[in-house]
């Protein structure tokens, strides 16, 4: 009853629209409207409106605690895992409301993968790390081929081809993070979300990840949260600057201050807060 499929045996047909029919490059993947996220009674980020385009890198920058990661985690419903998180507003993925009742978060996460701040490979072999996503998704093809293809795609094959059966935890930090990226693309998502992927890596490992991101952006839509402004300037087409505001009631909350082409945002920002932040003047 299950035809060979990369997305596996799910009882119901995937609720998200087919997006694989070669959309034009200017296509919008995410449309965010009036998005606010609450943790318990605390409003982490308020009224975010932004679009994210297909097959390009969008960077989200800004000081700590202004809601960048929170917004990122709305894109694949990772906030669902926090029991007291509440999402208000619209996040539309190819025109479908990600938070509608019929949407299955499991299916969402197969289309929208995530790479985390600290490399978090499974305590298993390199091979099993790559094969995990396809396996849980019910992949029926040749896993060996898939693993080799994926690792080649992630520019990691030459480094690990002799270590496929050794523990992923024995790799260096940078290799572990590239393995996590490879693991994510093994399930062939459309979008890869990255939450400060280089913050625990040295400059050489960071450069390798940035190279990889640029190559993957030809095929995948990438949204990256970073504290490293040079990184945003180097790799991204568009940059969103988040800051925190204090409203009339004295409540501090995160806001999207400005979103523009990366070149414009860094050279000619339209908001003075953006300019203050990127030039190192705060407040």
């Amino acid at each position: 009853m299950n035809p060979p499929s990369r997305h596996g045996p799910g009882g119901t047909p995937p609720p998200l629209p087919a997006h694989l029919a070669a959309p034009p490059p200017s296509e919008t993947v995410f449309e965010v409207g009036g998005l606010s996220v609450f943790y318990g009674g605390h409003e982490a980020v308020r009224d975010v409106n932004m679009n994210i385009g297909a097959r390009q890198i969008t960077a989200m920058i800004g000081p700590s605690g202004c809601g960048k990661s929170t917004v990122l985690r709305c894109f694949n419903r990772m906030n669902d895992l926090l029991p007291d998180a509440r999402v208000v507003g619209k996040v539309r993925y190819h025109n479908e409301d990600l938070y509608s009742r019929e949407v299955d978060p499991i299916e969402v996460r197969r289309r929208i993968g995530m790479v985390f701040q600290k490399p978090n490979p499974f305590p298993k072999s390199v091979y099993d790390n790559i094969a995990y996503g396809p396996r849980v998704g019910g992949f029926r093809g040749n896993l060996d081929d898939l693993v080799e293809e994926t690792l080649t795609h992630a520019a990691l094959w030459d480094e690990v081809k002799d270590k496929l059966r050794t523990s992923a935890l024995a790799l260096s930090g940078g290799q572990q993070q590239r393995l996590c990226i490879a693991r994510t693309i093994a399930v062939e998502p459309e979008v890869i979300l990255m939450d400060e992927p280089c913050s625990s890596l040295d400059p050489i490992a960071t450069a390798k990840i940035e190279d990889l991101m640029e190559r993957l952006a030809q095929q995948f839509t990438i949204v990256v949260v970073t504290h490293n402004m040079q990184q945003a300037a180097r790799v991204s087409e568009r940059t969103a600057f988040f800051g925190s505001e204090i409203d009339r009631d004295g409540v501090r909350h995160g806001r999207l201050i400005e979103l523009d082409e990366t070149g414009t945002l860094f050279s000619n920002p339209s908001d003075h807060r953006t300019e203050d932040y990127i030039s190192g003047r705060f407040g």
Partner: peptide, 15 residues
């Protein structure tokens, strides 16, 4: 078992 392992698994579409 660290939370990051659960998040990694769920982010790959595991139930």
């Amino acid at each position: 078992v660290p939370q990051s392992i659960r998040q990694a698994s769920l982010s790959l579409g595991a139930t």
